[in-house]
Design a binder for these strands. Structure first.
Lengths: 139, 139
DNA sequence: CTTGCCTCTCACATTGATGTCAGGTTTTAG
DNA sequence: CTAAAACCTGACATCAATGTGAGAGGCAAG
């Protein structure tokens, strides 16, 4: 398939695909006229790349990881293992952080909802105590 | 305290603090000479801002949220509630996504480890089947 | 008062992924 | 064969948060 179709299937812009290739994340065979051709597997690969991007891995990091996945017998697999472990840890930490943030957001929403209810009970407006200073304990 | 101290306490650059103020996320009183002064609470506030940033909220979004937290009696609290709920959902989705990505990474690591073990068992090198195509089923 | 450190504003640079535009070529449908 | 649609390369634009540097001024200790 050509680049437009891959883009459509993977839900990515054509521009991005060319960028991935430029970064060494994706390869293509070229037609006689120079147009890129891809296989079905590339759809999956692009999806995976997107996933890693979403996980906060940089293009640079992904570049170091993917070659190992293509041919796991490379000598660099040791380094890649290490890097994968490191990224996994980073990801776990990040997830923890997001969970805590979501909790904090929940606290704020409960507080806001409480205020809403209070207001609905015909209290005078602008009686508010700031939510942040009292409700949130950092880190 | 002055800006340098706040920066140090919150673990943020001075530049960022000025940027937060520019974006309306943070306010300061000014000394006669024009220097910014902050209170203890601002340390906490900055930590919270950082947390929201880490959760992927844009400066724009945070700007819309924080005023509601400062004085929860504002009329905009309805809109803010809605936005908070929306961001909470987005955050949840994102967390789900990261968890799945971490799982995928685990799969890859297991595969890589298996290959490592196989190699250690004195197999010839470069026998590798690509991990990605076989092991990963997208989305 | 002077020295040194901190702060001020303004402005331009950077980074990463992507958008967009221009000018030209390939492929495909009619 | 021709026109439309898709593609090519290359370059410049964008966005958000932050870095960085210049030139000037505030503030506290000696």
């Amino acid at each position: 398939m050509r680049i437009g179709e891959l883009a459509a299937r993977a839900g990515v812009s054509v521009r991005s695909l060319r960028y991935y290739e430029e970064q060494g994340l994706l390869t293509s065979t070229r037609s006689a006229g120079g147009q890129r051709h891809y296989t079905q597997d590339d759809v999956e690969r692009v999806a995976f790349i997107q996933r890693l991007y979403a996980a906060g891995l940089s293009s640079r990091t992904i570049t170091e990881l993917l070659p190992c996945l293509d041919s796991p017998s490379d000598e660099n697999s040791d380094a890649a293992m290490e890097r994968m472990a490191k990224e996994r840890d980073r990801l776990s930490t990040h997830i923890e952080d997001l969970l805590r943030t979501r909790d904090a957001l929940d606290v704020l929403m409960v507080a806001a909802q409480a205020h809403r209810d209070a207001r609905q009970a015909a209290r005078p407006p602008h009686d508010g105590v700031p939510v942040l200073a009292s409700g949130f304990r950092g880190r």
